[in-house]
Design a protein around this nucleic acid. Sequence first.
DNA 1: CAATTAAATCGTTTATTTACGATATACAAA
DNA 2: TTTGTATATCGTAAATAAACGATTTAATTG
Lengths: 101, 101
Amino acid sequence: MKRTIENITYKKDTEELARFAKALGHPTRIEILKHLENQSCCFTGDLVEVFPLAQSTISQHLKELKDAGLIDGELKPPKIKYCIDEKNWKKAKKIFTKFFS
Amino acid sequence: MKRTIENITYKKDTEELARFAKALGHPTRIEILKHLENQSCCFTGDLVEVFPLAQSTISQHLKELKDAGLIDGELKPPKIKYCIDEKNWKKAKKIFTKFFS
DNA sequence: CAATTAAATCGTTTATTTACGATATACAAA
DNA sequence: TTTGTATATCGTAAATAAACGATTTAATTG
């Protein structure tokens, strides 16, 4: 990316907001989250049926949402149940609300 | 990006939210917007002084914010005055609020 | 019309993202 | 212990993003 020599540091709030926003920055991920909001939880396989995307692609999107802290996976072998991470969801909501106020 | 053959179509709401979110998905752009919120408007040059980034890089970020509709540029030759686009700002606020509710 | 000034755009490099198919992993049940 | 199933991870290709310096553009002033 050809970064500037000494990496810029941003305020923690800024980093956090950008991080959440970035995770929300793809329509598929928005749809996944909407889906999770509707039915509280679901398995990877459910989403693979809903979207015309490869299983690996869905899994990748889930990983990003998880890395951003927006969702949480619970082992229900051999499946994995994904839910909104309520704590971080509230946090994101708060940060966005504050930002737009 | 190796897209699926027939492009996926998303709901308009989803596309819009993802678009706004993507624009917010970089800390520099968040900081630019915070700056604009504080002092309502500013010139490109002001931002170049604030951030340790090249003028062209700042300009690029401004373009993205403008393309997303979050800011608006007004000619004040030889400068350009950037302000928050209030209409779309409200729209974004509404969309995010709805999404998180 | 020429010079100045501020910002945009161009061309380039490197990093990251998005997508895929193929393969590996983890756990339950047989 | 092997088999089956659901999901993650790997490897890869193509697109996009982020940064830079150099150049161009647009408008005012001399």
